[in-house]
Write a protein that binds this DNA or RNA. Structure first.
Lengths: 239, 239
DNA sequence: GGCACGCTTCGACGGCCGTCGAAGGATCGA
DNA sequence: TCGATCCTTCGACGGCCGTCGAAGCGTGCC
């Protein structure tokens, strides 16, 4: 019994039929947005080629894009797209068992990672929430519609607290870069701290041994010291 | 969270990325096997092109093939293949509403149709079963593994019964063609009568107005008369 | 303003693949 | 044995598409 109408599946299938595009889509499977450059590296092609591919995926409504500064972050368009990729994977030969290394890396990335130059992942979101609820940080314009417009201010209490770990907030205010805003963290669907403040705080924490750089590109690992200090200084408890 | 291993989905997707192959696979979605020629017509390509496509689908393990006489019947390899096609359909634009005409035809084909030159479909399977259970037909070699080797004999009772509707069974025995065997009917997953006997019986029933040829290629429609005669002569009741 | 960086557009190259007619093989019926 | 039917193989043609370097554009940082 055939359905009363058929779909033209060939054009969509053609988008999946290229190795480079297939790698990109597979990399996006977990829902985390990736920049065009990261996708190019994942697929092993030049930026020009990747751009062409991403344009086609956009036209085909398989991905969406969000501009954030100089970057463009791509995501799968929806669960139905992911379902297609998984269905095809089921009847495709496995290419290589990469062992536990990658899956452990993936889990680490969820826990903590850098987003451009500041802390993201579960730890980033938790720290941001803690700073707000402790009154170290105050929203000026917590616009969720346009994260680029968001703005925050450090309270007096916050300035003292941040000073205690070696951060010169006053100097950061004088920086040309936006002082403090938020990014939406797509894994967590929660915002994390951004801007000059976010970058400086992250750099300070790494410098001071709260986090260590992992083997994966953007991975960070919370140390025992970091876990304690985050709780003490910010009232931030990680799962 | 990414799976510990990935699949190479591009080659499979490439098989779906051609319009002709996509039509063929969609036509096979309901599980009914179709011959290479039927698939060529469905896709609107030449026999040569269709053969090339079917070879690729075979290599890619998306379909299986069964030889039956001069025909080669293709089927989807499994439910997982069907799942892929349906998943892609869900994110592909609908192409055209073909109205009720085609779906009514599909239903008619399920009810009764010709298989090469003899009766198939639900009616064919029902008739075959009735002839066996009434003792008009006797299995000599009811081999299900190899339908081509199957063989049946008409009993004395059967010969009288068939004679009563104008069939000369003795003459059919002298024909060079195989006397009686069975085909597996893929829609019904039940066998139906084959060979010289099957063809002659079918021709006689059409000639006598038990069935009428439908608009679709191989469709047959049971008439009221046919319904009554099938019950009277063979004890065969159609749903 | 100047530089660095990320991304896109352009143009050109190369290769893969869908298409068909003609010919060949297999099967069946007369 | 012969012709008809179904299907495959072969060879040739044509077009589409992935690829990259170079150049252009926008953004952010100093």
């Amino acid at each position: 019994m055939r359905a009363p109408y058929d779909s033209d599946i060939a054009p969509v299938a053609a988008l999946l039929a290229d190795r480079a595009r297939a790698s990109m889509l597979t990399a996006l499977l977990d829902g985390r947005p990736l920049s065009a450059g990261e996708l190019a590296r994942t697929a092993g092609v030049s930026a020009a080629t990747a751009s062409s591919h991403l344009g086609k995926l956009l036209d085909g409504d398989l991905v969406t894009v969000v501009r954030q500064g100089r970057h463009r972050y791509y995501r799968l368009k929806g669960a139905e797209v992911a379902a297609v990729i998984e269905a095809i994977s089921r009847i495709s030969p496995d290419v290589e068992v990469r062992g536990l290394r990658q899956s452990r890396q993936a889990r680490a990335l969820q826990e903590a990672r850098t987003c451009y130059d500041h802390l993201a992942g579960r730890a980033g979101a938790a720290l941001f929430e803690a700073m707000l609820s402790r009154g170290l940080l105050e929203p000026i314009d917590p616009s969720y519609d346009d994260p680029a417009a968001s703005a925050y201010e450090v309270t007096d209490k916050g300035e003292r607290q941040l000073g205690s770990i070696g951060l010169d907030v006053a100097a950061l205010r004088r920086a040309r870069r936006r002082f403090a805003g938020h990014c939406l963290d797509w894994t967590e669907r929660r915002p994390h701290l951004n801007g000059a403040l976010g970058a400086a705080l992250t750099a300070r924490m790494i410098e001071d041994g709260w986090f260590e750089r992992g083997s994966a590109r953007r991975a960070l690992l919370v140390t025992e010291k970091g876990r304690g200090r985050l709780a003490d200084v910010f009232g931030c408890v990680l799962g």
